[in-house]
Simulated scan of single mutants.
Amino acid sequence: MPSAAPPFPAPLELRGEGLVLRDWTEDDLPAMPALFDHPDIAYWTPLASPFDEAAARARLERDRRLRAEGSVILLAITVDGRTPCGEVMLRRSDAGIELGYAVGPAHRGQGLAARAVRLMAAYAHQQLGADRVILELEPENAASVAVATRAGFRPLDVPLIEGEEKGRPYALQTWGRNLP
């Protein structure tokens, strides 16, 4: 992360694309396991698995700490401002602004992730001055590739990012979207 990054505003609420992206609250803790305790999310993301209420509480605490440090924002994806359907993440890094997302199984197929990514990318451009926003995803993750494409991202000609998470090797492809 770039040194001396200013903290992100709290609370934060973004509206657009038929969505309300808002801060997670303690009231959301019971809903989070239904969103994130799923084999797809366990496989493709670094989220804890199993994802129970203790994991939800730890995620909320981590979110608040990283936001105060100015490195990460985690927002609940909602259509009504209340019921969480998933999450969108914005992270400052030396490479720039990176976004990530996860949508609960019951809420898939509605375009929520692509809309949330576009809304968060607009925030990165308008409020943070980002010229480019990136996504890092595994090319084999067809659902994530579809989200990236629908959100206006394209693969960049950069080396794969290789590593291991949860005992599984991965190779992430970087996708980018230049903002107007």
Rank of each mutant, 00 (worst) to 15 (best):
M1G: 15
P2L: 12
F8V: 10
E13V: 14
L19M: 11
D28I: 02
D28C: 03
L29M: 01
P30N: 06
P39R: 05
D40A: 14
D40Y: 06
Y43V: 09
P46Y: 09
P46N: 14
A48K: 09
A54S: 14
A55S: 11
A55F: 02
E61K: 04
A68Y: 00
S71W: 10
A76C: 07
I77E: 05
I77R: 09
R82T: 15
C85H: 10
G86H: 08
E87P: 00
V88A: 01
M89G: 02
R91S: 13
R92M: 01
D94C: 05
E98I: 00
G100L: 02
A102M: 04
V103P: 06
A106V: 02
R108T: 15
G109M: 13
G111E: 08
A113L: 07
A114D: 00
L119A: 10
A121K: 05
A130K: 07
L135V: 08
L137H: 06
L137P: 06
E138P: 06
A142Q: 15
V147N: 08
T149A: 13
A151D: 01
D157T: 13
L160Y: 14
I161E: 13
I161F: 05
E162W: 04
G167F: 11
Y170C: 12
T174Q: 12
L179N: 10
